[in-house]
Computed example of a mutant assay.
Amino acid sequence: MLVRFWGTRGSLAVAPTAQSIKGKIARALVAAGGRSFADENEAAAFVEGELDFATGGTYGGATTCVEIEAQGDGSFILCDFGTGAREFGINAFGRILQGHKRVFNVFMSHLHWDHISGFPFFGPAFDPNTRIVIHSGHADAEKAFRRQQEEISFPVAFDWLRAKIEFVMLTPGKTYHIGGVDVQVMEQHHSHKSYGYRFTDTAGKTAIFSTDSEHKIDSMEGEVEVAAFFRDADLVICDTMYSLADAVSMKEDWGHSSNIVAIDICHEAGAKRLALFHHEPVYSDDDIQRMHRESIRYEELTRREQPLEVLCAYDGLEVRL
């Protein structure tokens, strides 16, 4: 199983500012210490090997979109249609030209704008030979997708799309066989509800997609069912939008969770890897990197029988299970 992250921000797509790019370049020049490089390849090796990620790269700014490539029936498997879906669609066309199946099974966590706003720019939706099946726990999923393409909001109406588009409602607690993988659904605590998904392929690898769900540190006894859903997962992609301080003070009841709570639940579940995800749009690359480092340290201090590898998702990250 291969997991590709096409969009990892929450709430709002963001772009780096000119000032933030200048800051990265300045820090890189200081780190180089006057060294010169023979060519771009040599300079790229320096960036990759000697600069921290926040200086030499970026966590990105596209909103939620994650691809699950698994041993299945050859269809694409996607989680959410955030703005990262545009880049995914371009990439998917390239694979289709090489013979990939033109079927997309898409699993929606929920219907807020940051999770559906990439769909109007999703190229395969304009291909009459493509089939798109949108799976959701929401009865009003089609209404939400159509409404964002009404004339007052967008110039291309939903009915102008050429692909064969279907909406399928899933029920929490059931196990489905979709796209050649087993899929389980969990209801989560969020405005208008959200849903988490557990994907298990024929090789027995399991990935969890659980975003936009609030888990409170002062009521962890209520998270037993969540830990059971995450049980022994090879990768848990989890909403860690806030630091613990933000989650328990200014942003309590906003429908999102912290890095600390995600680690606690993954420890309880015996999960192998955790990907910090749905990054706060006001957090800079430095802020996200700091949270990642703090998360690794917290995991080390609270570790149980087996270690939990803590990753930090960024646009373009690939994780092979």
Score class of each variant (00 low, 15 high):
residue 2 L to C: 11
residue 5 F to Y: 15
residue 14 V to N: 00
residue 17 T to F: 05
residue 18 A to L: 01
residue 23 G to M: 08
residue 34 G to A: 09
residue 35 R to W: 04
residue 39 D to G: 07
residue 44 A to D: 05
residue 47 V to Q: 01
residue 48 E to M: 13
residue 52 D to K: 09
residue 55 T to K: 03
residue 56 G to P: 06
residue 60 G to T: 00
residue 64 T to I: 15
residue 64 T to G: 13
residue 66 V to P: 10
residue 67 E to A: 12
residue 70 A to H: 07
residue 73 D to K: 08
residue 74 G to K: 13
residue 78 L to I: 13
residue 79 C to H: 11
residue 81 F to A: 12
residue 81 F to G: 08
residue 81 F to C: 12
residue 86 R to L: 00
residue 87 E to L: 13
residue 88 F to G: 00
residue 92 A to T: 08
residue 96 I to H: 00
residue 99 G to D: 08
residue 100 H to M: 13
residue 105 N to V: 09
residue 108 M to C: 13
residue 110 H to A: 10
residue 115 H to M: 09
residue 116 I to G: 00
residue 123 G to W: 09
residue 127 D to W: 05
residue 128 P to N: 03
residue 131 R to E: 14
residue 131 R to P: 12
residue 132 I to T: 08
residue 138 H to L: 02
residue 144 A to P: 03
residue 144 A to T: 09
residue 145 F to L: 15
residue 147 R to S: 15
residue 154 F to Q: 05
residue 155 P to E: 08
residue 156 V to E: 06
residue 158 F to Q: 09
residue 162 R to Y: 01
residue 173 G to W: 04
residue 176 Y to I: 11
residue 176 Y to M: 11
residue 185 V to D: 02
residue 186 M to K: 10
residue 187 E to V: 12
residue 188 Q to P: 01
residue 189 H to P: 01
residue 190 H to A: 14
residue 191 S to E: 07
residue 194 S to N: 09
residue 208 I to R: 01
residue 211 T to I: 15
residue 213 S to Y: 04
residue 228 A to G: 03
residue 243 S to Q: 09
residue 248 V to A: 09
residue 249 S to W: 00
residue 251 K to Q: 14
residue 254 W to D: 14
residue 256 H to Q: 12
residue 258 S to W: 02
residue 260 I to R: 08
residue 264 D to Q: 12
residue 274 L to N: 04
residue 278 H to Y: 09
residue 278 H to L: 13
residue 281 P to D: 01
residue 294 E to H: 11
residue 311 L to N: 03
residue 312 C to I: 12
